[in-house]
Design a protein around this nucleic acid. Structure first.
Length: 289
DNA sequence: CGGGCGTCCTGTTCGC
DNA sequence: TGCGAACAGGACGCCC
């Protein structure tokens, strides 16, 4: 499940081919695309000039268009030689033309950016660049993007902001922090991990947290996700970097998918697994209050 | 507007 | 052993 750190690592991988020209676009599953999307073929002959990320959304910026991507549950974005057999469920292929000049211009010829998504929970949307993207933040005119809360790694996500949001909700704090309109980027893995680090019981109502606790939780979420980016993300089954390799943060997880294991904090209680909003939450009832 | 739930999808795991 | 059922999970759309 790609969350903020995994998406950031994918972005960094794509960033390495910045400047490349798109030779040809192939896609085969229209349902993955937004209804209002521009024909994906429009980016043929355009150059990839930049990459952006907000929460779990990724934006590939071309000369005249923006490609907005969500990896969903099982989406991967691979940079591969066309000779390599594509993974099953490859739904979008951007064939690259090379960097256009210099001695390494041929180095990317025949290479492809490939989007594969077995469970088809991903989402793709191509739009023309608007005035807003030039003047403000890239992609802000995009409806889904504009509804997102502040990216979890930015300064806009701070204790006071989070506290004010929490005050208005009676939902469990674990469920609340997963709401992308509140803060963008936190998913199921890092929600459990951040709450453990902040020593907060995931089943508490959001509006029961005081300012200090909200500040601690925001800091914990940032700390965890920054560490994960350094380790190239958490790999369980599907997630892969653009080079096809997995990250290593899974070995640093404290509670996620560790039901019945001894808590690494108190070393006396077992990690519990509970269901919240049909999703698994892992925590230590002794350490988290 | 907040909150709860159904829906999409397929590889993996579970149960008899 | 094998096969079908249940499950996992992000975000949207619908309902109250």
């Amino acid at each position: 499940m790609p969350e903020l750190p995994e998406v950031e690592c994918v972005r960094l991988g794509i960033e390495s081919v910045k400047g490349v020209q798109i030779h040809k676009v192939e896609w085969n599953y229209p349902a993955l695309w937004a209804k209002e999307t521009v024909d994906p073929q429009a980016i043929e002959s355009q150059k990839l000039i930049n990459t952006h990320r907000k929460g779990k959304y990724l934006i590939l910026e071309f000369d005249r268009h923006l490609l907005l991507l969500h990896l969903g549950m099982s989406g991967v974005f691979l940079l591969q030689d066309s000779q390599v057999e594509p993974r099953p469920h490859t739904h979008l292929v951007l064939k690259l033309k090379g960097k256009g000049h210099g001695s390494d211009s041929a180095s990317l010829n025949g290479w492809e950016l490939r989007f594969s998504d077995p469970r088809k929970f991903g989402h793709l949307h191509l739009i023309e660049k608007g005035e807003a993207s030039a003047k403000y933040s890239v992609g802000d005119e995009f409806e889904r993007w504009s509804k997102l809360g502040p990216d979890a790694l930015t300064r806009s996500f701070h204790g006071k902001y989070f506290f004010e949001k929490c005050q208005k909700s009676i939902r469990d704090i674990k469920i609340f922090i997963l709401d992308q309109k509140v803060v963008a980027g936190v998913g199921n893995i890092y929600a459990s991990e951040a709450l453990f680090r902040a020593k907060i019981d995931p089943t508490r109502p959001a509006n029961s947290l005081n300012l200090t606790e909200c500040t601690d939780l925001a800091k914990a979420a940032k700390w965890i996700m920054k560490k994960s980016v350094e380790k190239r993300g958490t790999t369980f089954s599907d997630y892969r970097l653009t080079n096809g390799k997995g990250g290593s943060f899974q070995s640093f997880l404290k509670v996620f998918q560790k039901e019945n294991e001894t808590c690494p904090g108190c070393k006396s209680h077992q990690i519990l697994k509970v269901e919240q909003d049909k999703r698994s939450t892992f925590y230590c009832r002794n350490c988290q209050k």
